[in-house]
Design a protein around this nucleic acid. Structure first.
Lengths: 221, 221, 221, 221
DNA sequence: AATGAATGAGCTTTCATTCAT
DNA sequence: GATGAATGAAAGCTCATTCAT
């Protein structure tokens, strides 16, 4: 609205304020993430989130519409981060079986181990919440599955193979997403076996490859 | 005031009362199950549970310690039911690869399709609740995984094969449990593709077998 | 729901409980009325209402849906009471000019003086609240006005006279309701001149009659 | 740093600034008036007022002490406007019965129809607010009533008549103010019958005159 | 003068749980 | 055994107001 005409560059202090605002937004988001992962969504109050971020509960409402909004933001952020990592891994491996391996390793080593709170939010705290959260989560998983499916299709194309049925590619994607998710829950959230994780990743990838091969129908000529 | 001392056999009416009590207990449990699956745990109040069971909220507390107790009961009950089904399937197949197939089919056809509310509770409503619920759930999944692991070990023993590493059997179990769970969520809770379920089950079993074979090291002599 | 068959009369204790429940409902309603009239609707918290009624704030919600519901109940109750009084006064006076006098006296002497809190609620606290309250209030005033209008029409019929225009009867009713309302506000809520009220009532009635006569067109043959 | 000592005449730009300041004050006041009339005082936030006036919420506080202050300003402003109009009408009619008619017409035609938001604020939004607002409103109505009373006294003096009792003049004023207020509420705020307003005004004036005559005791010699 | 981020008091409301009857 | 009235703690949220910039 009120803008001084002919002011091309925002002032120093305006820039600093903008920066501070973003920082605060992030501080609050990180506080919520930490608490949701540690104590659970319903066991965390807005005041606690404020406390940890060193602001008042009212301030939290300046940055987020409501509590649900925080969770959704966290879920989307985590999901975006996750998809980007996996996607990059695939792209680097140039649509080969190698890509499947890479993606698995990246998932465990670079996502789960580095961001256990994100894993907890995506796979535990955002489950069975409100309808809105559930739909965001569903959407996220649909996209993840689609990502994997597309990768599988690219691989099969490159290798000149076809899948057993129309279902296969999607189902494979669902299975892979499912088993990776469970491994994360089982070996990170429930027990901390992060030191074994590379072995686990290796065998998980083998399992995946074995499964995928089983659903390949035949070599196309 | 007459009091029958040393009453060996319960009277008719005592028996009837006992029976009615059990019925009521079940009615309440089923009401809660229905509502938890439909509206979610937190969105369901004790009064609603009572209403659906045609008793007062107070009465619910006669049968269950508290709301959490209902969820835990439901979780244990569903888990028990589930394990029994799968276990029986394995036993009937006499610890063979056939058993793996059977178990998969039973899981989808006889458990998921027949008891979608149980699936919803185990895989959605009981996730990320209280610590106590979480620990029961964790315990349930550990047992499930152990069941599968034992089945896998029995199969390999019978076939005179060995797994790739000490981890393998457990990891396989985790993977299988994970992918089956996700399929249930994806194809039943999120979208209703129950009519495709037998095809899905078939390919899921194939995937599983392919994965398992990949982690078999070698034939023992 | 649960009802013992063949139980004609409710038990003593059931009756007593029913009575107590009604009493409590009334106690809460009276507490709210008192506080709304004394401190104003927005300045009164649910907890204060509970306190005065010697129950917890939670209990207030057992009897009323929310705060607005209390105000609406009070408004309807007051309006009903009011209309009944005035209506009876008219009926007793047998649709004559005498009726107009009676109604005026009854309004001031039996309603305003006896129930000043109701006056305050109807003419002050329920003004300009939520849309819902406003619509109830509007409805109440429309009915009051209609009551007066009908009374005026009956009088004119009996006296074989007609009003100046189609508007007249309604307008007269609006005027009468308005001036009575203001007198109540002015001489009771703003200043306590209740000891002069009978003189005020007398002159107000005279004013009213003078005004009504002015809008009578002519004697019908 | 130069500083002009003893600055007699304000500079051009100071004048402009002064003018802009007054404009802004008015813009804010008008925004508040519009919103209070449309949505109600409590349903309007300071930020909304700022938004409509194209300033920030903080700026509103530069021009007004607080929210209540805005309402009081509006109430006083509306009241002043109103009294001035009616007063002028009386003065022009030279203290005659004609004056009563004029005032009525002016009230409906020039005040109510032209400034419906002011009517809404005076007769609805400022009712039953804080003590302070209530006292300003009371004060306003006392002045209005006094105005009317003085007009009535001047008329009676000029016509060489006297009122029935000491109360009469004041009571008449109260009645007139009351019935006019209610007509405005009934035919403008509740239903929009502004097209019938001149007929309504005519009959309302007749009613008034009829009422006033009834309280005239006798001709003085 | 103007901004808008920050505050924090205060409110309504919900609901699991208890307990006298 | 069953009821349902009563509780009270806890939470989310709103918003008038302040103040550094």
């Amino acid at each position: 609205m009120k803008k001084k005409i002919a002011k091309q560059t925002p002032s120093r202090s305006a820039l600093r304020r903008q920066r501070e605002k973003e920082q605060r937004y992030n501080t609050i988001l990180r506080s919520a993430e930490t608490l949701f992962a540690k104590k659970g969504y319903h066991q965390t109050s807005m005041e606690e989130i404020g406390d940890l971020a060193e602001v008042s509960a009212g301030t939290v409402y300046f940055y987020f519409k409501n509590k649900e909004d925080i969770l959704i933001t966290l879920l989307k952020e985590g999901g975006f981060h996750f998809r980007k990592m996996i996607g990059d891994a695939f792209r680097q491996a140039d649509a080969s079986v190698e890509g499947l391996k890479n993606a698995g390793v990246v998932f465990f080593r670079d996502f789960c181990v580095q961001h256990p709170e994100k894993v907890t939010i995506i796979f535990r705290e955002a489950v069975g919440m409100t309808e809105k959260v559930e739909s965001v989560r569903k959407d996220l998983f649909k996209r993840m599955t689609e990502d994997i499916k597309q990768a599988l299709l690219r691989i099969s194309e490159k290798l000149d193979t076809a899948y057993r049925s129309d279902l296969s590619a999607e189902l494979l994607a669902v299975c892979i997403a499912g088993l990776y998710g469970r491994i994360a829950t089982y070996y990170l959230i429930w027990d901390d076996r992060s030191k074994d994780l590379m072995n686990i990743a290796e065998e998980a990838v083998l399992f995946t490859i074995g499964g995928v091969e089983k659903l390949v129908a035949a070599k196309k000529y």
